[in-house]
Nucleic acid binder design. Structure first.
Lengths: 136, 136
DNA sequence: TTGACGAATGTTATATTATACGTTTCATTC
DNA sequence: GAATGAAACGTATAATATAACATTCGTCAA
């Protein structure tokens, strides 16, 4: 770091990254976060990844494993049971929660003796808007 | 390709990759596949990825998105609705199918007008064997 | 106040995963 | 046998992620 440059509190980077995620309104990669963030908030990849890790722990962001990309969380609770419907045409993502789903997975785990820590549920397909556009 | 070298039918690479996946008995990366494959079957990354793509299309292998790794399929049918329970301690993977789950996701999709093409369902946790080992 | 220490942060360099792109090969057709 | 085009190959490089180390800063004992 250049001498005399103020050190940033890590929470500050988390804020910047979250702001960028929210502006994006779609999943973006860590490197997109870096290039889309305010010019006065340049950061190296590990800094971005650490900020993301924090945000995910805090329930403010999610990683979409099938895209290697990140989104701001749009729900307040149930951070661990969320599912995502990803439109492969327009890239939009719907975040949702299904008690049935969580229950089914919990039951299966219990019956098999699997200690469930986290679940990744991602659907790929076409959102209603794109479906309609296709029909024209 | 070196001149005079016999060209391999792409299906042949798929066979080699599948053999390697089956031997591994756990998820392995594309690069592990390359280095674990028979010495007489050297292949460049795109070749390995193409073979994997074929195998996945044919229902003979799966990609585990949360690991960026691949496994041989252990079920014959329902290739698209499979779920995976991944042990974060030993790396083992259980592949399973839950009608409840598929139904719940199908229902949600239908009700929202989302055209579902594929689903990724991956659980992370600890397998029964590792759970027991922990208790000691 | 000062120095020792540890935790947190920042950077460089590099590992890992994946694909764009140009070339070669081979089957097909003439 | 030459022309053609589709499929498959590898080189080179892009994109994603992290290891390893250096720096900073707050805290606490002296």
């Amino acid at each position: 770091m250049r001498k005399g440059m103020r050190r940033r509190a890590s929470a500050e980077y988390a804020d910047i990254v979250l702001e960028t995620l929210r502006k994006a309104k779609r999943p973006i990669s860590a490197y997109e976060i870096i290039s889309m963030s305010r010019a006065d908030a340049a950061m190296a990849p590990p800094t971005a990844y650490r900020a993301l890790e924090r945000l995910i722990e805090m329930g403010l962001a999610h990683k979409l494993e099938s895209l290697n990309a990140f989104v701001a969380c749009s729900h307040s609770a149930h951070h661990n049971d969320m599912a995502f419907a990803i439109c492969d045409s327009c890239g939009s993502v719907a975040e949702f929660m299904l008690p049935t789903l969580a229950k089914a997975l919990g039951n299966w785990s219990r019956s098999k003796g699997f200690k469930l820590n986290a679940s990744t549920i991602e659907l790929h397909g076409e959102c209603p808007t794109c479906c309609k556009a296709d029909q024209r």
